[in-house]
Simulated assay, not measured.
Amino acid sequence: MIKKTCIALLFTMVCALTASAQKADAILGKWINPSGEGQVLIFKKGNKYFGKLAWMKEPNDASGNPKLDALNPDKALQSRPKLGIELLKNFTFDGDDVYEDGTIYDPKSGKTYSCKMTLKGDILKIRGYIGISLFGRSENWARVK
């Protein structure tokens, strides 16, 4: 009887962990910003979530060359193309549709901010901030179908 109870308990725990991982992975995929200028592909490395700029409406400048990360404070990174830049880094899932403790890089300003993301169906609420989330800016990204 004890053996059956232990097996049932173990099975329940495995099912719960699998369901939690599936819920956390609901963020994976492509998301488009409100202006429609870019799409970010969110992916997973280990237990953390990251996002890279996977598509740009206008990836090239007027001369036909790739737009560069010219405003990056790291001089060594200023010559890299914007397309493919990892914008979102090191997010963890808190179990309540919230991804936190990560950062977001804004290639338009060259600045990196603390960030929190909340998943609501096919809308990803992004909140970039300095210090506490009271001082920041929010955007809603839509899932690319």
Results as ranks from 00 to 15, higher is better:
133 S>A: 14
132 I>N: 12
135 F>S: 13
95 G>H: 03
120 K>L: 10
21 A>C: 04
13 M>I: 14
143 R>C: 15
113 Y>K: 02
127 R>M: 12
7 I>R: 09
100 E>R: 10
121 G>V: 01
92 T>F: 09
83 L>I: 09
80 R>W: 05
11 F>A: 13
133 S>I: 08
63 S>W: 06
2 I>K: 05
25 D>Y: 01
82 K>D: 04
112 T>S: 12
102 G>P: 01
22 Q>I: 00
118 T>V: 12
61 D>V: 15
58 E>C: 02
79 S>L: 10
100 E>D: 08
35 S>C: 04
45 K>C: 02
126 I>Q: 02
32 I>R: 14
50 F>L: 11
66 P>K: 02
88 L>R: 06
39 Q>V: 04
122 D>Q: 04
30 K>C: 05
33 N>I: 10
83 L>D: 13
68 L>T: 04
15 C>Y: 01
88 L>M: 14
79 S>H: 14
93 F>H: 11
38 G>T: 08
24 A>P: 00
82 K>R: 14
43 F>H: 09
49 Y>K: 03
19 A>G: 00
82 K>L: 15
74 D>Y: 14
137 R>H: 12
120 K>E: 12
60 N>W: 02
68 L>Y: 03
78 Q>F: 07
120 K>H: 08
97 D>V: 00
55 W>Q: 05
120 K>G: 00
89 K>A: 15
123 I>N: 10
110 G>R: 01
23 K>P: 00
82 K>A: 02
63 S>L: 11
2 I>W: 01
49 Y>R: 02
132 I>H: 07
48 K>P: 00
24 A>G: 07
69 D>Y: 05
104 I>Y: 03
17 L>M: 13
75 K>I: 15
20 S>R: 02
115 C>P: 00
93 F>G: 01
138 S>H: 08
85 I>V: 13
15 C>D: 00
126 I>E: 03
122 D>H: 01
129 Y>V: 07
84 G>A: 09
82 K>Q: 14
23 K>D: 10
56 M>P: 05
48 K>W: 00
80 R>T: 11
26 A>K: 15
24 A>I: 12
7 I>M: 07
86 E>F: 08
144 V>R: 03
20 S>L: 08
39 Q>C: 01
58 E>Y: 02
129 Y>M: 10
131 G>W: 09
104 I>R: 03
131 G>H: 08
6 C>S: 10
62 A>T: 08
106 D>F: 07
96 D>T: 14
60 N>K: 09
97 D>R: 00
69 D>H: 07
7 I>Q: 09
142 A>Y: 11
72 N>G: 13
121 G>A: 05
122 D>K: 05
32 I>D: 07
88 L>Q: 06
18 T>W: 03
55 W>V: 06
139 E>I: 00
51 G>N: 05
39 Q>F: 01
